[in-house]
Nucleic acid binder design. Structure first.
Length: 287
DNA sequence: GTCCAGGGAATCA
DNA sequence: TGATTCCATGGA
């Protein structure tokens, strides 16, 4: 199936900014990945974006397009958001210019929770490897253009998997967190609706009930999943670094507290601090 | 061998 | 509340 839109955005700004782990660049600069039950290839040609792929289960052209519009957040007006964030100061203006193609994906909640539990004290290439092995083993196979792809496993695909099995995928100490998270989600199938109806702070506390989910992982889940709260501020090594360099100026970066960073983020970025954070993270990490 | 990575839990003051 | 320490793993 194919869907073409008269809009283009730098693909690496979307797929290589740390929000997702299942998209890979091809030699022709297009990207291929799997989301929900769909294998998709995305490429830019003459400032059009071409989405081409197939679904595991048969869907109509209209459903295919709706999936893409929702996943890529195509109904949100990023131009006006970028304008607003650029007005904050010259740093944000530069960060937005650097990552101008960025879009916050609306990723599946379960996938986002498991993926960011695995991300704890880990690096992106290794996170991608672990998730890839998990999908190959427990996801459903989709063959497209002669290649095999696998969906991200569902809750039921993983509910019978034990801690040792997770360990054997290379998760390290995160194995028991993932195990417990799967059990938690099996017992709370309506988590999505619950989170959607909550204010951000309440949603953070709810997610932090899950073992392996602390403040940073909870904020990533709320920002990068289809719950989509923009007023969160995930603080990792890179965000601490860039916030200290730009605003706090502590000679010892490790002594900067999260509370201190949060205060600056609230004052400067307000309700768009999640999106601002992502521009800053991407800009600083690639520098 | 040492350091680091999109951190969190357990422990102790 | 705030500060330390430990937790697996693989690449630099």
């Amino acid at each position: 199936m194919k869907y073409i839109i008269n809009k283009c955005f730098e693909l690496r700004d979307v797929f290589d900014n740390g929000q997702c782990f299942r998209w890979d660049e091809n030699p022709d600069k297009s990207y291929t990945g799997v989301f929900h039950n769909i294998v998709l290839n995305v490429q830019n040609v003459d400032c059009k974006t071409i989405f081409e792929g197939i679904s595991l289960k048969p869907i109509t052209q209209n459903e295919f397009e709706k999936e893409i519009i929702e996943y890529f957040d195509l109904n949100r007006d990023y131009n006006s958001l970028k304008k607003e964030i650029s007005k904050i100061d010259s740093n944000l203006s530069e960060a937005v210019k650097y990552g101008s193609g960025l879009r916050l994906l609306n990723q599946d909640l379960f996938e986002t929770i498991i993926s960011f539990i695995i991300s704890a004290n880990n690096n992106i290439p290794r996170i991608k490897g672990i998730i890839s092995r998990m999908c190959n083993k427990y996801g459903q196979k989709i063959v497209w253009q002669g290649n095999e792809y696998y969906t991200f496993p569902s809750i039921d695909d993983l509910v019978g998997v034990n801690v040792e099995d997770f360990r054997s995928l290379g998760m390290g100490f995160r194995d028991k967190y993932v195990y417990n998270a799967v059990q938690f989600l099996k017992a709370n199938p309506n988590l999505q609706e619950v989170l959607n109806g909550m204010e951000t702070i309440e949603a953070e506390k709810t997610l932090e009930q899950i073992s392996g989910v602390g403040p940073k992982v909870a904020d990533c889940i709320l920002l990068f999943s289809d719950v989509k709260k923009l007023d969160v501020f995930p603080i990792d090594v890179w965000v601490r670094r860039v916030m200290n360099e730009l605003y706090i100026h502590n000679p010892d970066e490790k002594k900067v507290t999260n509370k201190e960073i949060m205060k600056v983020a609230d004052e400067k970025f307000g309700n768009l601090k999640g999106l601002a954070q992502q521009y800053l993270f991407y800009w600083r990490r690639e520098k």
